Amino acid sequence: MADQVYDEALHARLQQAQKFKEAGNQCYKEQHFRDAVRRYHRALLQLRGLDPSVLAPLQPFGAEIPALTQAQEQALHNTQVDCYNNLAACLLHIEPVNYERVWEYSLKVLLQQPENVKALYRAGVAFYHLKDYDQAHHYLTEAARKEPKDVNVKRYLQLTERELSSYRQKQQQMYLGMFR
């Protein structure tokens, strides 16, 4: 009986999270980025505590939470990944851009989906603007390897390579000046 109640509550939360995510997608399409961010956060709040890979600190002592089915766990992770990826996309459109958050959300996606081109690109953009050009180059190179024709990836990769080249030239000049 308790398992059935839990399953129904779990199903309801997964559905509600999906509805918030879809509402966020609609807001994004309409370029209402702040509203989209709110919807994606609400979706993630619905999923909080359901993820079996995260310990639930408020779980009643000794209470056994039934395991998620494979389909439920897949739906949970897909919704989380989509929300984090979409949050990063939204944040790139909201001034001033919070590149630390873009980086954080992109890395959450990459932990689940290391080959996700959009997350690789967004992580690269975030690192570029945070002036960590080595990390930016790493992520943008991976994104370019997977999507070699993407003009945005190419543009940021070129900007990053220009910055790295400039930095290396300055370092070289500094070291030459030290030994003269």
Results as ranks from 00 to 15, higher is better:
101 R>V: 11
88 A>K: 04
116 N>T: 02
123 A>D: 09
118 K>W: 03
57 P>K: 00
130 L>Q: 12
115 E>Q: 10
75 A>P: 09
77 H>D: 11
118 K>N: 13
88 A>H: 06
24 G>S: 09
81 V>Y: 08
77 H>C: 10
75 A>L: 12
40 Y>Q: 05
116 N>G: 08
118 K>T: 12
118 K>Q: 11
20 F>R: 11
32 H>Q: 15
21 K>Q: 05
36 A>M: 01
47 L>H: 04
68 L>D: 06
51 D>K: 07
49 G>E: 05
42 R>S: 15
112 Q>V: 12
121 Y>H: 07
82 D>S: 01
34 R>W: 07
79 T>Q: 07
35 D>P: 07
49 G>H: 06
66 P>M: 01
47 L>E: 11
69 T>N: 00
100 E>M: 13
84 Y>G: 08
114 P>K: 00
21 K>R: 06
38 R>F: 04
79 T>W: 04
87 L>P: 02
38 R>W: 00
79 T>R: 02
85 N>W: 06
94 I>H: 11
59 Q>R: 13
29 K>T: 08
61 F>Q: 12
85 N>C: 02
121 Y>D: 10
117 V>H: 12
134 D>W: 10
71 A>V: 13
80 Q>T: 03
131 K>S: 10
23 A>T: 15
43 A>V: 12
109 V>Y: 02
74 Q>P: 12
126 A>N: 06
68 L>H: 01
52 P>N: 04
26 Q>F: 02
113 Q>E: 14
110 L>A: 08
56 A>I: 03
77 H>P: 06
102 V>C: 14
69 T>Y: 00
52 P>I: 01
91 L>M: 11
77 H>R: 06
30 E>V: 08
113 Q>I: 03
84 Y>E: 08
72 Q>F: 10
68 L>F: 02
50 L>W: 03
100 E>Q: 14
114 P>W: 01
22 E>A: 14
30 E>F: 03
125 V>E: 08
21 K>E: 03
131 K>W: 08
113 Q>A: 10
89 A>L: 10
112 Q>F: 10
83 C>I: 02
41 H>L: 15
69 T>P: 12
43 A>I: 11
67 A>R: 09
133 Y>P: 13
86 N>Q: 11
37 V>R: 07
67 A>T: 01
99 Y>D: 09
132 D>P: 13
78 N>F: 05
73 E>G: 04
58 L>V: 11
68 L>N: 05
130 L>V: 09
42 R>A: 15
105 Y>W: 15
118 K>A: 08
95 E>P: 15
122 R>P: 13
42 R>D: 15
78 N>W: 03
82 D>I: 10
72 Q>L: 02
27 C>P: 05
47 L>G: 05
128 Y>K: 09
52 P>G: 07
28 Y>I: 01
124 G>S: 02
45 L>C: 14
49 G>W: 01
111 L>H: 10
64 E>C: 06
132 D>T: 08
45 L>M: 14
101 R>L: 14
20 F>K: 06
